Amino acid sequence: MKQITLFLIFTLGLFAGVIKAPIVSVDNVNNVVTIKVNKIDIGVSGFLVHRLSQRTSSILKSLEVVDYNEATGIATLKMAKFDSLLQNSLPTGNWDVEVGDIAILAYGYTRALLIAPNEEIYYRITKATKQVHWLHPDIFTTILSFNGHPTPLESDFLAMSNATSIGLIFFYLHQKLFTVDAQSMKVINISDAALNQTKVQLPFYSRIYEIDAAWFGEGSDILEEYEPYYCNMLIQNNPSNKEIQRICSMKSNITEEGESSWSIKSIYNNLF
């Protein structure tokens, strides 16, 4: 428990506050900007603010850190369309990104969701620190039911992040805690978190045991395996991270349960 507490304090210490830095260069050909910052991890996301006047400003782009030079303190940020606060009823502007615009990164990093295999692990981790405002997984299962996805898709995590303003997702896999940026799905940190685990609730621990399924399409099937599925999702979004591949190749010590885990009675008996 002490190990988990120290891990969470360390992780959140890296993102104790929102990072704000002015844009120092703009490359419209490669769709990137640069900022100068003391330290930042690749994969951290945010947005770019363009000031229109002393009292008004507008968010122009989504940002993701794709490179950081420790020697110069220069971080390179990839720009993309910003649609986290999409409102079709409001007009949009045609302003260009300029030097001096403000990059805001690590926004919402004190709000997080934990994907855990069972109730005991979920509560042991979330009770280890009060520095995090934990979004209960019941809210995520509600989003999954609305989308008809008993198997969570990457788009579901993004939709949840946009709807609830969480900045981080923690995945508990192979007795490790993976800290993941909720917008970029990039792994920011990995730490040991050895806890006893014998059973798993699919698709993750929640007090809601049934998720409505669409008739067909990706995500409409019931998830059959916990660690292999989420490991594959992280590997796909972090293809150059060899540590994730190494950890995910380890043999699981969780007893996987398929459709039977969706029975309220069986889950109740397993957890209590």
Rank of each mutant, 00 (worst) to 15 (best):
I59W: 04
L48K: 09
N94E: 10
L195Q: 12
Q54A: 10
N241D: 14
L105P: 02
E154L: 09
M233P: 05
F157Y: 05
L14E: 00
Y209F: 08
K199S: 10
L90T: 06
N28L: 14
I247V: 10
S240G: 11
Q183L: 09
L12C: 03
W215I: 08
G17W: 06
N69R: 12
A112D: 01
C248G: 08
M160P: 06
A71L: 10
L113P: 01
V33N: 08
W215D: 12
T72N: 00
T151V: 13
E259Y: 10
T76K: 14
H149I: 02
L14Q: 04
V24H: 12
I23M: 12
P203C: 01
V49P: 10
I115P: 06
N237H: 14
L63C: 06
Y229D: 07
Q175E: 07
I42R: 04
C231R: 01
N253Y: 02
P150S: 04
P152K: 00
Q87M: 05
S260T: 09
D138L: 10
A163P: 08
N241Y: 14
Q175G: 00
S220W: 12
S261M: 01
I104Q: 13
I244F: 09
S45G: 10
D41E: 06
K36R: 15
A214P: 01
L202R: 14
I139W: 04
S62Y: 07
F204I: 12
I121P: 04
Y172F: 14
A193F: 09
A75G: 05
H174R: 09
R207C: 07
V49K: 05
E225G: 10
I143F: 03
A21N: 04
D41C: 14
S240K: 15
A116K: 09
T141P: 11
Y68M: 02
P203M: 01
D181Y: 13
E120Q: 10
D101R: 11
N269Q: 02
F10N: 04
L77Y: 04
G258Q: 13
F171K: 13
M160Q: 07
P152N: 02
Y226P: 00
F178S: 03
A116P: 06
S184Q: 11
S252N: 07
L195K: 07
S89R: 02
N147L: 05
K186Y: 15
Y205I: 15
S261A: 13
L223W: 04
